[in-house]
Simulated assay, not measured.
Amino acid sequence: MKNAFILAVLTLSVWTSFAQGSSGGLSNLQGTQSNSLGQSMDALNSRGSWLPVENRYSVDGTPLAFELGGNKLVLVANDGTNYNIPNGNYNAQIDQFVSVISQDSIYVMNALSIDYALMNNKKMKRFSGEKERARFYEVLASNKDVYILKKRQSKIKPGGVNKMTQARTSNDRYYMVEDLYIKNGDELEGLKLKKKLISKLFSDKETEIKKYIKENDLNIKDENDFLKIFNYYSTL
């Protein structure tokens, strides 16, 4: 990933640039669509900060889920207003949507003001469960109260350290973890793509599903194939 020095500030700055409250200026723009970042900042009440890069050491890679540049981020507020966010991205380490303003400053949007987001036309919405705190998931597919979700989480792998001198031999590095989840009513749990899902998720249409899988040469362990199977099941 390029511009790691830009991205490291995302982790450092967001903790002090969090929003205060969830309504604020929303009433000023109800029923409108904002194309101005300034309007979006005010209306979403995010009160971000412009902070320089102040790293004690370097972290290679990025906590952002999407490449820099060319992203289309639309935030839909709780009142239904759409906000187009320039240079938008999703920080998968701290679960926040951001706008990368320049090489040394970013703006953090208030998650409490957001109903859902469209990140490059991918819908992302907050879900929570008994064992999972509320965070944004990408909605891959849905059928009534059942949602197939993808969680993106950025973590840091520690760099190398010389055991004798305690000097760093390599930088820490961000890495992205992607996991599938299923939301069924109030339950939210991890989803492992295995053959037994056929009888677990599609028990009432198991015969039709097995026929569909065979005729279309699908593998339920493959994410794209699984989504085709789930979407077909939704039509039955």
Rank of each mutant, 00 (worst) to 15 (best):
I148P: 04
I198C: 03
F230K: 04
Y181F: 14
I6M: 07
E223D: 03
R168T: 04
P63E: 09
N55F: 15
G70L: 11
Y181R: 12
L12Y: 11
T32G: 05
P52R: 14
S99C: 06
L140Y: 02
S199G: 02
Y137P: 00
S99F: 08
T235R: 13
D145E: 10
K122Y: 03
F127L: 04
N45Q: 10
R47S: 15
K214V: 10
I101V: 12
S46Q: 07
S99T: 11
N219G: 10
S170Y: 12
N89A: 03
N87P: 08
W15K: 09
P63L: 04
K144Y: 10
R133F: 11
Y116A: 06
F18Y: 11
N89R: 03
A111Y: 05
K131G: 11
K155A: 04
S128G: 10
L26Y: 08
E130L: 07
S27E: 12
G69M: 02
Y147L: 05
T81S: 08
L37M: 09
I229Y: 03
N3P: 10
G185N: 11
N35V: 01
A134H: 03
I106D: 05
L64G: 07
L227R: 06
L64H: 08
F5V: 13
V108L: 12
E215Q: 14
E206M: 00
K200L: 07
L180A: 13
F97V: 06
L68H: 02
T32R: 15
M109L: 14
E206F: 00
K211I: 06
S199F: 03
S13Y: 06
A4P: 12
I148K: 04
N91E: 09
V146D: 00
N55C: 15
N89T: 05
A8E: 10
N171E: 07
S154C: 09
L227P: 04
A141I: 03
L201V: 01
G80R: 08
